[in-house]
């Protein structure tokens, strides 16, 4: 019996340990995108926010589609995503109170250095995509309903193309895994600049097309409606939401660089 008693006590201790880390401290859960997390942006700005407010931000980095799903179920206190249409639908459905532009960067078209589809000669993003489709060159699509995937579908739409065929490969993966796969099969891919800048396994891939209005990538912060989800930490989330567009928040975003280059441009000009 003593042995059983001891084992039970050990179990209680382990249980206590595992719940001990869930202390009721001041934190919010932020559902955001893999692109912001993997670029290293949050590692740069969250400590600044925490220092000035004492609120910690716990980032769950998923695709934008999944981030909306998490927030709709009431499992996140705040949202930072990049899909204007989805964000507006989120507001229209009554899940959000307010949406603010926070920052932007751009998408880039990446592909093998030899550029068999001659994408680098294109004048617009739509033309670049038409060249890829025309050459039937392998294209790796996120295929995961993320913000980047939604942007990619819009560009195909504006190019008047419904991509299909063995050259168009829907991977159903995050940005990083998609880049890994594209590098492995020398495919073209639409990526956000943040993830690309922090990506280590480029192999033969290089940036082939950039700088087009259609490639702008705007990140918005959404304040979640507390009437819809009363348990959401509204006050703490609002402090974060306001801080992002405040002078201090915008400066924190602007001062995040990689290899000397800023990756995200703040939207609020003071």
């Amino acid at each position: 019996m003593i042995r059983h008693g001891r084992r039970f006590a050990l179990g209680l201790v382990l249980l206590a340990l595992s719940s001990g880390t869930v202390a009721a401290d001041r934190h919010i859960i932020l559902a955001s995108t893999t692109s912001t997390e993997q670029s290293g942006l949050f590692g740069h700005i969250i400590p600044r926010f925490r220092d000035s407010t004492g609120i910690d931000v716990r980032v769950v980095a998923v695709g934008t589609g999944q981030a909306f799903a998490i927030a709709r179920r009431g499992d996140a206190d705040a949202l930072l995503v990049h899909d204007r249409r989805g964000e507006e639908a989120f507001l229209a459905d009554g899940y959000g109170l307010e949406r603010r532009d926070v920052m932007y960067n751009d998408f880039i078209i990446i592909g093998p250095g030899e550029d068999p589809a001659k994408v680098s000669d294109a004048d617009t993003a739509a033309e670049a995509m038409r060249r890829i489709a025309g050459a039937q060159a392998p294209f790796a699509s996120r295929g995961d309903d993320s913000g980047t995937h939604r942007a990619e579908r819009r560009i195909w739409e504006s190019a008047g193309i419904t991509p299909s065929g063995s050259w168009y490969r829907e991977l159903g993966s995050g940005m990083g895994p998609t880049l890994n796969t594209a590098a492995g099969m020398d495919a073209y891919v639409l990526a956000d600049r943040g993830t690309w800048a922090g990506f280590g396994n480029r192999q033969n891939l290089t940036v082939l097309f950039e700088d087009d209005e259609a490639l702008s990538n705007v990140y918005g912060s959404l304040l979640i409606n507390p009437e819809r989800h009363p348990h959401v930490k509204h006050d703490l989330a609002e402090a974060w939401h306001r801080w992002l567009v405040s002078g201090a928040g915008q400066e924190a975003i602007a001062s995040f660089t990689r290899g000397g280059e800023p990756l995200f441009v703040p939207v609020v000009t003071r």
């Binding site: 993997q38 716990r58 890994n180 922090g198 280590g200």
Partner: peptide, 20 residues
């Protein structure tokens, strides 16, 4: 996979793989 809260070995490995 929250940094410092719920990140364990396997999720850290998946993250670093996706970062290339």
């Amino acid at each position: 996979n929250i940094d410092g809260v719920t990140r364990v070995m396997t999720t850290a490995i998946a993250l670093e793989t996706s970062r290339g």
